[in-house]
């Protein structure tokens, strides 16, 4: 059975309150796919950081758009693909913050993409058919 991937998709609007639907969706996924308890909060965090960037910056203000989130589980590897029709934006190009700076010198913000890269094993970006496609892979034991 482990060889058969499981797939599920969530589609949200570009509205920040839709993140609450993500939380509920992940709770269901955790139960249905029997995921390890520590995994879902990490996935939630990586997804929130990625999706909030898309919701706040990818689209014209006031426009209604959809973002699709495809989950695929194979054994102990989860692949999540985010697809949006917004402005081209490659988050993997964002420079990492210097996390060794003292509090006085730390800029406020700039941690979102860094957290995604730290949580996920792989983060890649592609522009496909005029859409942003961000692929994140998480593996566990």
């Amino acid at each position: 059975m482990e060889g058969t991937p499981k797939n599920k998709t969530l589609i949200i609007r570009n509205d920040i309150d839709e993140l609450n639907r993500l939380v509920m969706f992940l709770e269901i996924l955790e139960e249905e796919w029997n995921l390890p308890p520590a995994l879902v909060p990490s996935l939630n965090l990586a997804l929130e950081e990625a999706l909030s960037n898309i919701i706040f910056y990818a689209f014209e203000k006031g426009s209604e758009n959809e973002i699709s989130i495809d989950f695929s589980l194979k054994g102990t590897e989860m692949t999540i693909i985010l697809t949006d029709g917004g402005k081209p934006y490659d988050p993997t190009k964002k420079e990492d913050p210097n996390i060794n700076l003292p509090a006085e010198d730390r800029p406020i913000g700039g941690l979102g993409v860094f957290l995604i890269k730290k949580i996920m094993n792989e983060v890649t970006y592609n522009r496909v058919d005029n859409k942003n496609q961000m692929t994140m892979v998480k593996r566990w034991n």
């Binding site: 909060p41 929130e48 950081e49 909030s52 913000g109 979102g112 957290l115």
Partner: peptide, 9 residues
Amino acid sequence: NYISSSGLR
């Protein structure tokens, strides 16, 4: 039990 970069800032 949960914090994202919005909270960290």
